[in-house]
Each structure stands twice: as structure tokens, then as C-alpha cells.
Amino acid sequence: MSRLFITFEGIDGSGKSTQARMLADALRGAGHQVVATREPGGSPGAEEIRALVLEGDPDRWSAETEILLFTAARRDHLERLIDPALAADQIVVCDRFADSTRMYQGLRGPGLRKIVDDLHALMIGREPDLTFIIDMDPAKGHARAKGRQTAEERFEDFGTELQEQMRAGFLDLAKAHPDRCIVIDGDRTADAVAADVFDHATARIAAS
């Protein structure tokens, strides 16, 4: 049995949710015990916070308030699902984690990234073992995300400028943490991307 915490990150519309689901399915098919989850969400309390932060007008919350809300959701998620699954030697595959807060909120004003990191260290204290950053041209990703036409479009409504900032931020994050971050070209078919992701994931599992 393998104990590994795997996350997927990237701009809106990059396909990370699809890839998280495909990896979880592939790992189960290979005989692993896998818990698939998402952020914000993953536990009942965190799912309630999800509706607060992903719906409504773009200016509904300040970035500072969002940091507090996301951290509260993440703490509940960690206590109720992630930590128990890892303690049971399961693989956790999560669509987004703290890196998204570092980008979506941490890039929106001076000093915000430090607030995100300080609060994360105080209340969460865990980083993923492996993070896949699905890289995508911001214009393509934004068009794809807006085309979904769901109720959870609050961050998409900030426009492509935020997506461009986040893409650069995710790529910088990968350079700063090459031990856990792997950048995957998302501008291909879902199956092609999934094959790369699965190869990297199984190699990390074998080495763990």
C-alpha cells in the first residue's frame, strides 16, 4: 500500500480537474487505494465554504477575506479527509490545494503572499508530496472555463489578466520547488496528458 498526497494545479480551464479524476481512476485500476477530493471542498464544512467563495460577484470578498475562508475550508478538509486517508496508507489525489491560494489570492496585492504562507504554516502545516501543474495558454484556458457556464465562475470573471499572472506564478512555483512540482503541457488531448501524469505518478509511488 502507498501513502502519497498528490495535487493538481493550474489556471482555470487547464484541465486539472479532468486529469485528477483520470489519475485517480488509473491508480485504482493499478490496484491502489485512492481517495479523490477537491478544494475548496472535500468535507461537508469545506463544501459550504466553497459556495461562498466561488459564486457571486468578483468583488464579493476581498483577497484577505478569501485567504481566511480558504484556509478555514482547508483545515476542515485536512482534519476530516486528507490526514485520515494518509494515516490509512491511501493515496490522496486532490484537485487544487494551498498553491491555488498562493496564486489566486497571494498575487492580488502587496504582502498577500506572505499572509497566505504564514497562515498556511500556522494552520495547515502540510505540503503535497507531488504536485502536477497543468500548463495552458491563459486565453485558451479562460475561454474553456467560461464555456462551461456553471454557477462557479467568480474567479473566471476576473478576466485573462489574473489568469496570466497565475500562469507565471505557477511556473515560478515549479522552479522554486522542483522536488515536488512537475509541469505538464496541457495543450494536448486529455489522454496524452493523462499518460504523462500516470508515468510520473507511478514513478514517484515506486520511489516512495
Rank of each mutant, 00 (worst) to 15 (best):
T131E: 03
K146M: 15
E164K: 13
A30H: 09
K140M: 15
I11H: 09
P84S: 10
D12Y: 00
S100W: 01
L173W: 06
D135Q: 07
E161P: 06
F5E: 12
I134G: 10
I124V: 14
A46M: 10
R204C: 03
Q149C: 11
E9W: 02
L54A: 05
E164C: 04
R126K: 14
V92Y: 00
R96P: 00
V197F: 07
R144C: 03
D135G: 01
A206L: 03
P44Y: 14
G109A: 02
L112T: 00
R148K: 04
L52Y: 01
Q165D: 04
L4H: 03
I133L: 15
F155Y: 05
L119D: 07
R102F: 14
P110F: 07
Q165L: 08
R144K: 05
I184D: 00
C181N: 09
Q90G: 07
A85Q: 02
T150R: 01
S208H: 06
P138S: 05
H77Q: 04
V193A: 12
A85S: 14
A20D: 04
E153D: 15
K175Y: 04
A143R: 15
R188F: 10
E164A: 07
E39F: 05
E152K: 07
F70M: 11
D83K: 07
P178W: 08
R180Y: 08
R113T: 14
V53L: 12
R38S: 09
A203G: 05
E64T: 11
D25M: 09
G15D: 02
S17E: 03
P128K: 13
G45Q: 05
A46I: 01
S62N: 04
V34Y: 05
R96D: 01
S14M: 10
E152S: 10
L52F: 06
D172Q: 14
H177P: 04
I91T: 03
S2R: 06
D137K: 06
D76P: 01
G186S: 09
L112I: 00
K16W: 02
A87C: 09
G125H: 02
